[in-house]
């Protein structure tokens, strides 16, 4: 929880604060939230790795009901030069990029090999579609169950409405918040204990947009579910569109993850990590602020 609960127990400061500052520790994330956060993190890591393994079985994406094999909008492929050297080629629309070493062609046991994503990004590492699917569907269930638990818990405890949905004051301050983020200026004091407006928007978008979307698009790829989800498949333009959007949501998670880790680091990695492991988050206030 971002806001300071009324029952927060002030923990004695671990170190002597400088004269003008006051350091106090608040209980920021409840135990259920911390557990669900880490289950979610493990699920996303495995779903991403196994998803890329599945993608590698046919490393091309299309729009529409079926595959227009000559017109993927994204493909990871390879070309071979006259000397026999393999080059990884990533195509996005009509653009071509040489991505040798990472996409299209990467080393497997020291040998340049034609494969979409490299072994370090896939679960399992070697090409093994059946096993990738086994990992993916097992952790998809845990991801969904965990997500449903989070949603119910967040509704029940009002975490959703109190901590995640931006307040009117938040919306008014959005310009300032964008500027502050760009300048890497972060809130201090009591303001640091609550989620700021960009944080709230990011969490809501990633939970309900990427999270809900990636599950729905996964279901829309299932030939069995398509017998009852035809409307959803048609809504996005077809099964191959659903596969593309599923992939894009996964990329959305990566983008979120990178920004998330960046913000965790620049706003105090130790404090942040402790708060998501033990729940306790330290706030440092200058005396000035406390008198405001």
């Amino acid at each position: 929880m971002a806001s300071i609960p009324e029952d927060a127990v002030p923990v004695p400061p671990v170190e002597t604060p400088p004269a003008q500052t006051l350091r106090r520790v608040v209980y920021r994330h409840t135990l259920p939230l911390r557990i669900m956060h880490w289950i979610n993190a493990i699920c996303l890591l495995i779903l991403l790795g196994s998803g890329l393994q599945i993608f590698n079985a046919h490393p091309a994406l299309y729009w529409g009901q079926r595959s227009h094999f000559t017109h993927p909008w994204l493909s990871l492929g390879a070309t071979q030069s006259a000397s026999g050297t393999l080059h990884g080629v990533t195509r996005i629309g009509s653009h071509r990029f040489d991505t040798t070493g990472v996409l299209g062609v990467s080393k497997v046991d020291g040998q340049p090999t034609v494969r979409g994503f490299p072994t370090w990004a896939t679960i399992p590492g070697p090409q093994w579609l059946a096993m990738g699917r086994a990992w993916h569907f097992f952790f998809a269930w845990i991801f969904v169950i965990n997500g449903v638990c989070f949603f119910l818990y967040a509704l029940w405890t009002r975490h959703l409405t109190r901590d995640l949905v931006p307040t009117r004051r938040d919306w008014r301050g959005i310009g300032r918040s964008i500027l502050d983020h760009a300048l890497l200026k972060h809130p201090h004091g009591a303001e640091a204990a609550r989620y700021n407006v960009l944080q709230r928007i990011a969490y809501l978008v990633v939970i309900f947009g990427c999270g809900g979307g990636v599950v729905l698009m996964g279901l829309a790829m299932s030939p069995r579910m398509d017998s009852v989800l035809g409307w959803l498949v048609d809504l996005v333009g077809g099964r191959q569109s659903a596969r593309s959007i599923h992939f894009l949501f996964a990329m959305g998670f990566i983008a979120f993850f990178l920004i998330h880790i960046f913000e965790v680091i620049v706003t105090g990695v130790g404090n942040n990590l402790r708060s998501i492991i033990t729940g306790r988050y330290a706030i440092t206030e200058t005396r000035d602020e406390t008198h405001q």
Binding site: G49, M131, F137
Partner: peptide, 30 residues
């Protein structure tokens, strides 16, 4: 996590545990 997934994939038991999700998918989808 990443190396462990490869090791687990080679065991007898882990793929069975992972495969149990398919029974759930089959039941739910049916």
């Amino acid at each position: 996590a990443l190396g462990g997934c490869d090791k687990l994939s080679q065991t007898d038991w882990a793929p069975k545990v992972l495969g149990s999700a398919t029974a759930l998918s089959h039941a739910a989808q049916s």
